Simulated assay, not measured.
Amino acid sequence: MSTGPNRILDEFAKLMTDAAGAAQGVRREVETAFKGQAERILNSMDVVQREEFEAAREMAAKAREENGRLASRIETLEARIAELTGQATPAAPAKPKPKK
Rank of each mutant, 00 (worst) to 15 (best):
M1K: 08
S2I: 12
S2F: 10
S2T: 13
T3S: 13
T3P: 00
G4K: 02
P5N: 09
P5T: 06
N6E: 15
N6T: 12
R7K: 15
I8A: 11
I8G: 02
I8V: 15
E11F: 08
E11A: 13
A13M: 10
L15H: 10
L15G: 06
D18M: 06
D18H: 07
A20Y: 04
A20D: 09
A20M: 08
A20L: 09
G21S: 12
A22V: 09
A23M: 11
Q24M: 12
Q24S: 13
G25Q: 03
G25E: 03
G25R: 03
V26C: 06
V26Q: 11
V26D: 07
R28W: 04
R28Y: 06
E29R: 10
E29K: 09
E31T: 04
E31N: 08
T32I: 08
A33H: 06
A33D: 04
F34T: 06
F34Y: 14
K35Y: 13
Q37D: 11
Q37H: 15
Q37L: 14
A38S: 13
E39C: 09
R40Q: 11
N43R: 15
N43G: 08
D46Y: 05
V48T: 12
V48D: 10
V48Q: 07
Q49H: 08
Q49Y: 04
R50T: 06
E52W: 01
F53T: 06
E54V: 02
A56G: 05
R57Y: 01
R57H: 05
E58D: 15
M59R: 14
A60D: 08
K62A: 12
K62W: 04
K62I: 04
R64L: 07
R64V: 02
R64S: 12
R64T: 06
E66S: 12
E66T: 11
N67I: 05
N67H: 12
G68D: 05
R69E: 05
R69P: 01
A71E: 00
S72L: 08
S72T: 14
R73A: 15
E75I: 00
E78I: 05
A79K: 04
R80Q: 15
R80G: 04
I81N: 03
A82Q: 05
E83H: 07
E83T: 07
L84M: 14
T85F: 07
T85C: 09
T85P: 00
Q87L: 13
A88K: 11
A88Y: 03
T89A: 14
T89R: 13
T89G: 05
T89W: 04
P90T: 01
A91H: 12
A92K: 15
A92S: 14
P93F: 02
P93R: 03
A94P: 01
P96C: 01
P96E: 04
K97Q: 09
P98K: 01
P98S: 01
K99R: 15
K100R: 14
